[in-house]
């Protein structure tokens, strides 16, 4: 049995622990691939504290996670509860909900680049109506050109890739015993009562797990769309998230040490968020 674990352990060490160790060490150095690394102690972290771009990226990331994660979870749950039964076209509906998660991120990003085009994209064509104004009497959102609209656009893109969460929640819902629902029916519980008092508590373990997992993933989710669709903009840094900030510093500005320090901050943030959630979710339950 121990031998069977070897490939996994070797992979874990070579692909995760070693790079993590190198990143952690590099966070305290200055390195540009050309010159020898130079030890600068806490210098990178001190610079991060003063860096306005980093602060913007950090706030963007937190706002993204704070809005996108609960929304993704809520949408996945709503769809799972809607589509878990056998029904006419149910299978097609389930596939439709799940499939965007299977599309390569770059292709998905390019598709949204077209969908979000402020002038010719189908979304604004639809929102604009015949006079070019929305039903609220204003011009349609400038998805790729106005900061807040661009941030909203990145969040909207992320909402359609909750297919995996949706599948897990469908499986979790289908695994719930049928008789407790029948009992609730006999007791004349309303749909809202059943959702609140039966479904939600019984699905809480799966929901909690997905919440923690999606929070971890949320720092990566924003990377490809921000790179492909908005390129970190509109200027100055409306959709520059931590992952894009790290990428730019490392691979465009060749500041590996600085990028490593930002990565360490990202990791610590993730750990803190997960710990807070675990604390909240660990109330006595069975």
């Amino acid at each position: 049995m121990k031998k069977l674990l070897a490939p996994y352990l070797i992979g874990l060490v070579v692909l995760v622990f070693v790079p993590f160790g190198i990143t952690a060490v590099m966070a305290f150095a200055e390195y540009d691939l050309i010159n020898e690394p130079r030890w600068i102690g806490w210098g990178n972290f001190e610079e991060l504290l003063r860096d306005d771009v980093f602060r913007t990226a950090l706030i963007n990331s937190l706002v993204f996670a704070g809005i996108a994660v609960p929304l993704r979870l809520a949408i996945a749950l709503a769809l799972a509860l809607l589509l878990h039964r056998r029904a006419f076209l149910g299978g097609t509906a389930r596939t439709t909900a799940a499939v965007p998660a299977a599309i390569p991120e770059i292709a998905y990003g390019l598709l949204w680049l077209w969908l979000f085009n402020p002038l010719f994209g189908p979304i604004n064509q639809f929102l604009g109506g015949s006079d070019g104004l929305t039903i609220f009497g204003r011009t349609p959102p400038g998805w790729l050109t106005l900061p807040n609209d661009a941030r909203a656009g990145i969040i909207i893109m992320s909402l359609f890739t909750m297919g995996e969460m949706f599948l897990i929640l469908i499986a979790a819902r289908q695994a719930l015993p049928r008789d407790v629902y029948e009992l609730a029916e006999i007791e004349d519980a309303t749909g809202w009562d059943i959702f609140r008092r039966v479904t939600l508590p019984l699905m809480a373990p799966a929901l909690g797990l997905l919440l923690v997992r999606d929070t971890i993933l949320s720092l990566q989710l924003s990377f490809t769309p921000a790179l492909v669709v908005t390129n970190g903009g509109p200027p100055p840094y409306a959709t520059t998230y931590l992952s894009l900030f790290v990428y730019r510093n490392a691979f465009e500005f060749l500041r590996y040490g600085y990028a490593a320090a930002a990565t360490v901050v990202m990791l610590l943030l993730t750990i803190a968020a997960v710990l807070v959630q675990l604390r909240l979710l660990s109330s006595p339950r069975r």
Partner: peptide, 13 residues
């Protein structure tokens, strides 16, 4: 009112 074979107790209550 019905008593089910599995009792159908709500595990979280």
């Amino acid at each position: 009112s019905m008593v089910f074979q599995s009792y159908a107790l709500f595990p979280h209550l």
